[in-house]
Design a protein around this nucleic acid. Sequence first.
DNA 1: AAATACGCCAACCGCAAGGGA
DNA 2: ATCCCTTGCGGTTGGCGTATT
Length: 272
Amino acid sequence: MGRKPSGDTDWLKRGAWCAEEDEVLTYYVKTHGEGQWRHVAKKAGLNRSGKSCRLRWLNYLKPGVKRGNISPEEEDLIIRLHKLLGNRWSLIAGRLPGRTDNEIKNFWNISLSKRIQEERPQRIINNKQAPNAGDNHHQGGNYCSNPSKDEDDQSNPVKSNPVPLSDISDDRDQNSSLSFLRDFDSYIHGLSHEAEINGFENYVVDDSNFVGHGNGTKCEDLVLREDAEAAKWKILGATSDHLIFQPNHEDVDLHAISAFLNSQDGYHQWVN
DNA sequence: AAATACGCCAACCGCAAGGGA
DNA sequence: ATCCCTTGCGGTTGGCGTATT
């Protein structure tokens, strides 16, 4: 928007998309499919960069993209996921059907970050403090690191340790859309308890490896290999504090997730 | 009514990763 | 091994609408 043209990109149109451009891009993608964005721009006759086309499609034109206000349920989920994942907007967005990373990022930067900051003193009091809480030696890695620049936000420094997913209680209500969250809650608390007993050193999560279980294995591989049960689960991501799972059911009910996170047993235990 | 301040959000940029030649 | 291209991600910017003075 209003950026200075430079170099050989002078011909590129910048700024807000008009309805005609949207129409052209939508038609082109629907007939030719996504990908090859640079060629999309040329072949569709749009004086836009491939990047711009891709962004416009993914954020606004793609079917299923939800517009409008973030619901309280979504807002709550964003807060929970941000606590676990940090500024991994794409990961967070992936758990909010129809929402884009850009939208969630904006929402966070504008409204939630302020609110969280205001609530911080209370949260810090509620969270367990680890002996080496200030010793954050995880450098920015890809999967297991927490890239958030706001170190203060990472207030629960319980290190995670991969465990066989079969260890996660399976005598709960497997049919409920909430069961995976109950299991996750149980899992996290198991980790916290174990960490308290054994000390945090044993549960350091490296950039992409679990120290002590390493072998150059990424956490996703490490856990998924542990048990065939893992086929039901996928790892969304991880921070230096936690792993976060979700079953491969694409139809997990958002309202149910939020309701769980709002419940006394779910929300407070999971967060704290 | 006009000027200014502020908040929101769409879009841009730079960088990194992955894949193919 | 290296280069190039494409894609994806997170941070930042600037335009626009609204509120305030």
